[in-house]
Amino acid sequence: MTTFRVLGMTCSHCVGFVTEALKELPGVESVEIDLSTGTVALVTDRPVEPAAIRAAVDAAGYEVEG
Rank of each mutant, 00 (worst) to 15 (best):
G27F: 00
L25Q: 07
R46W: 05
E32G: 14
P50G: 12
A52N: 06
V31K: 06
V48Q: 10
R5H: 12
V31T: 05
A60D: 03
D45G: 12
E24A: 15
G61M: 01
A59I: 02
C11K: 08
D58F: 00
F17S: 15
C11N: 08
S30E: 13
A56V: 03
S12M: 09
A55E: 10
S30Y: 01
E29Q: 14
V28I: 15
T10C: 13
E24C: 10
E32T: 15
K23Y: 03
A60P: 01
I53L: 07
A21Q: 09
R54W: 00
V28S: 10
T3G: 11
E32V: 15
V18S: 11
P26V: 00
I33E: 03
R54F: 00
G16N: 11
P26L: 01
A41H: 05
V57L: 00
T44W: 02
M9H: 13
D34F: 06
V15H: 07
T19G: 04
E20L: 05
L35C: 10
R5C: 13
V18I: 15
V40L: 08
E49W: 04
D58P: 00
T44G: 06
A51H: 05
T10M: 08
A21H: 06
A52T: 08
V28L: 14
A56R: 02
A59H: 03
P50F: 01
D45F: 01
A60Q: 02
L35D: 04
E32I: 11
M9L: 14
S30P: 09
F4T: 14
H13Y: 03
Y62W: 00
A59Y: 00
L35A: 07
E32D: 13
S36V: 12
V18Q: 13
V28H: 06
D58K: 11
E20W: 03
T39I: 13
E20H: 05
G38N: 07
S36W: 01
L35M: 10
I33P: 10
A41V: 15
G38W: 03
D34M: 03
I33R: 08
E24V: 07
R5I: 14
E49V: 08
A56M: 02
K23G: 02
L42C: 11
V31I: 06
T10P: 07
F17P: 04
A59F: 00
E24T: 10
V28A: 09
T39K: 15
T44K: 10
T10S: 12
V6Q: 09
A51Y: 04
E20I: 00
S30M: 13
H13V: 04
V6G: 08
L35T: 04
G61S: 04
E29M: 15
L22P: 10
A56W: 03
T19D: 09
G16D: 06
P26A: 08
A56N: 01
F17I: 08
A60S: 02
A60T: 03
V15W: 05
A59V: 01
S30W: 01
A41I: 12
I53M: 07
G27K: 13
G16R: 06
G38P: 09
F4K: 12
L7P: 04
T19E: 10
V28T: 09
